[in-house]
Design a protein around this nucleic acid. Structure first.
Lengths: 340, 340
DNA sequence: CTTGCAAACTTAAACGTTTAAGCATATTTT
DNA sequence: AAAATATGCTTAAACGTTTAAGTTTGCAAG
């Protein structure tokens, strides 16, 4: 199938391609096209089923109407949902999304950014991985429009959309305290990423404010690369001994899922023996025999805001940086109900 | 940041852009470029950090090295994982993926296909929605390279990657029979899509071959648009009365998740009272108190094959159609263990 | 000392658009 | 009636590549 171009229409109509272009981009007024001719051209275009060549248009305009999306892990429901809302929102603005998953790997992230920039995306939406500060700083130096989502670096003054991680964690721990839990533990990732640090800080401050001892001791971490084993170790440590934990706050959904699997194996009853709160949502939390209380992130809003900020930045490179923080909602369910 | 182009390099080196192009695309031999000049050009390109403009290249070559991905529902873990493997595999072949979610909606699907073709993708990978036969047939008429994945239309002779739905369902039901279940029900989608029909047929034939009565009566369907209520009705019907079901086979993961939520609410004990088998996998199945036996689809292989077939088709438009069927694996766990 | 040819490069067209500038012809204004 | 303006269209250049065809120079063969 040979694609039909402006030239084909022009030939069929016996006019120049310029004329056809003006008509089909609705510039008849400015270009003073005759009404009849416009009608004729439109009709021919319809008959030939003309579809504009986006690539040619991009080359001319220097804009691709494409945004690049670098997700940390597309197989994680949280990121998959963000990706979906971003794609939706982008389409609503006549933008198209090219995506890739960095799998929390710095090199893969750099690679992806390169590929996307090569493809002349007009901007990027990124969940930065640990250690990617330099990449992000470089983007800024190059004046590439971009927005960070879910995470950001305090030292880099760039657009970002994030939730109030400190407050969310503080609120979650407070909820556990109010529910009568005395020995609250937390499992987080071992990472320098700021959003996780904030969640930890929220936990620690809440513990201190409510005069709960041994918070530091009960704050465990797991390596992303050794998730399964590290979580098992952490839970073993938390859930044994005379003063074993009566509640665990998981810093992310992936940690919670892996943790709950093990808690199931150990047959530790939730919430009788152990209360659970997790960050993010997930079908798995609903299906747990004691539906899991979780911190709900406003995914839809995050995705929309990310696209909005990015497109504004693309339109106006001088635009001031936006740092958006959105509140989460604590969805209370059975998993932190009363002890037996 | 002004992007550097071939012309910039050419000016810096005092040569024509053609020469630069030959060198940077490694055509020195054919174009008989002087060794020293080649070295010099490469050095300048490096210094200026030249990045080829993919769009210009695409316009010239008529190929975008981009494939379009139309997923039925990216928020479903099964499709998200397929998307991820496709993206990975595409990147390995220097292709980039533009994706969109049709949300099982024919119009959205058509819309997406149009957008993607407009963007001059070299080919498409599609999970077709119900009622999209005409769209697919049209693609074929237009000789657009494409591959259907997960689903296909028997009346359309197009590339497709699918699993052996009939055999998989047959095997699952047989497993339930061997486990001593007598009144096996199935919950599927109410759809004309062939892959679901095959799963139903697998159920019905297995029931007949094992002389299980009332198969038709125990085959319930739910509408995608009224998932929650329809599933509740179906389960209510299946799980009441004197000859109530002692096993349910769910035709997809979304059905299973919704169903299990309700089964949880009803406090029907699994597997004591009711055995469960589901199609697809999911974290939720692991986390259910009685880990769910499921039919595992070879996602990685499906994604890889889809990309392979598509790229071959793109390279050789005359290539014969490939219909690939892959076997599934029944992963047996607690949920269809012994009755009490 | 032509001729032939290889080596090292340049020219120019093309891909499909967009858009400023140009050029007739017709109509209005002075 | 000449000048100004409006109308309807065309020309041509540009975006950044690729690549077939052409040009120039040097050098060996006849």
């Amino acid at each position: 199938m040979k694609k039909v171009s402006l030239k084909d229409i022009a030939t069929a109509a016996g006019v120049s391609t310029a004329l056809v272009s003006y008509v089909l981009t609705n510039k008849e007024k400015e270009a003073r096209i005759g009404e009849e001719m416009a009608k004729k051209i439109r009709e021919i275009a319809r008959q030939l089923n003309y579809q504009p060549n986006h690539i040619a248009r991009s080359l001319k305009s220097g804009r691709s109407f494409t945004i690049g999306l670098v997700m940390a892990d597309i197989s994680n429901a949280f990121f998959a949902n963000i990706a979906r809302t971003i794609e939706d929102e982008a389409k609503r603005n006549n933008y198209t999304v090219i995506f890739g998953s960095s799998d929390e790997n710095v090199d893969k992230s750099q690679d992806l950014i390169n590929v996307l920039l090569n493809r002349q995306v007009d901007g990027l939406i990124i969940t930065p991985t640990e250690g990617s500060e330099k990449q992000i700083a470089w983007l800024q130096e190059q004046h590439v429009p971009f927005v960070l989502i879910d995470r950001f670096f305090p030292g880099i003054n760039a657009n970002h959309i994030a939730v109030n991680n400190f407050e969310s964690a503080y609120q979650a721990v407070t909820h556990l305290v109010k529910a009568g839990r005395k020995r609250i533990g937390m499992i987080a990732y071992e990472t320098t990423l700021h959003h996780i640090a904030e969640r930890k800080r929220g936990y620690l401050e809440a513990m201190r404010d409510h005069r709960m001892p041994d918070a530091e001791k009960r704050l465990k971490t797991a390596r992303y690369s050794h998730l399964k084993t590290d979580i098992r170790t952490a839970i073993d440590q938390l859930c044994t001994g005379p003063d074993r934990a009566d509640a665990i706050f998981f810093a992310t959904n992936s940690l919670a899922i892996e943790g709950l699997k093990y808690i199931n194996e150990l047959r530790i009853r939730v919430p009788d023996i152990l209360a659970i709160i997790a960050f993010d949502e997930g079908e798995a939390f609903d299906l747990f025999y004691s539906p899991v209380t979780y911190i709900q992130q406003p995914i839809l809003q995050m995705g929309k805001e990310a696209v909005r900020v990015l497109l504004e930045q693309i339109k106006d490179q001088q635009k001031t940086v936006e740092n958006i923080f959105i509140d989460t909602t604590l969805v209370v369910r059975q998993s932190c109900g009363s002890k037996r």
